[in-house]
């Protein structure tokens, strides 16, 4: 129980550090961009990838990710959630494909939904991960693009 509490405490800390991370990422060249609206999920992923020694940056939704890309952030890989407010994964993929400078960035889709027939048209598809994600496979992918 105390372990669980400790976990929770850490979790709260991560939320705070995550925002710090993001601010940092705006200046630096991030290796992996994580587009995910749910804070806990986003932060857990950012920490996981950071823990492996890669730089990671989070975006709350597609629009924020697009804004960050347009303002110079160049990730080697984008991990994209599909269901998000403001701009969802489908919209983001279309916007990405429409921009010549960004269209070449590989995108891996992370989805909790198993409804495959409505997947966005993927350019430079880096794979499809169903949540809960097989993180060994995911980390292998990250290593491939960022290593």
């Amino acid at each position: 129980m105390s372990w669980l509490l400790g976990e929770n405490d850490r979790d709260r800390d991560t939320v705070e550090s995550s925002s710090l991370n993001r601010t940092r990422a705006q200046e630096t060249e991030g290796c992996v961009m994580i587009v995910e609206d749910e804070a806990d999920a986003r932060d857990a992923m950012v920490e996981l990838i950071a823990g492996e020694g890669f730089s990671a940056v989070g975006a709350v939704h597609g629009q924020e990710a697009l804004d960050m890309l347009k303002s110079g952030t160049r990730p080697a890989l984008i991990l994209l959630d599909l269901k998000m407010p403001v701009m969802d994964g489908w919209g983001f993929c279309e916007a990405l494909a429409a921009d010549e400078r960004l269209a070449s960035i590989p995108v891996a889709i992370l989805t909790a939904s198993a409804i495959y027939d409505s997947l966005p048209h993927r350019r430079n598809g880096a794979g499809l991960f169903t949540k809960p994600v097989d993180f060994q496979r995911l980390l292998a992918l990250v290593r491939r693009f960022c290593g």
Binding site: E7, E38, D40, A44, K131, P132
Partner: peptide, 10 residues
């Protein structure tokens, strides 16, 4: 599945 994913990642 989303929270589960967060747990695994964590």
């Amino acid at each position: 599945r989303n929270p589960l994913n967060t747990i695994v990642a964590s």
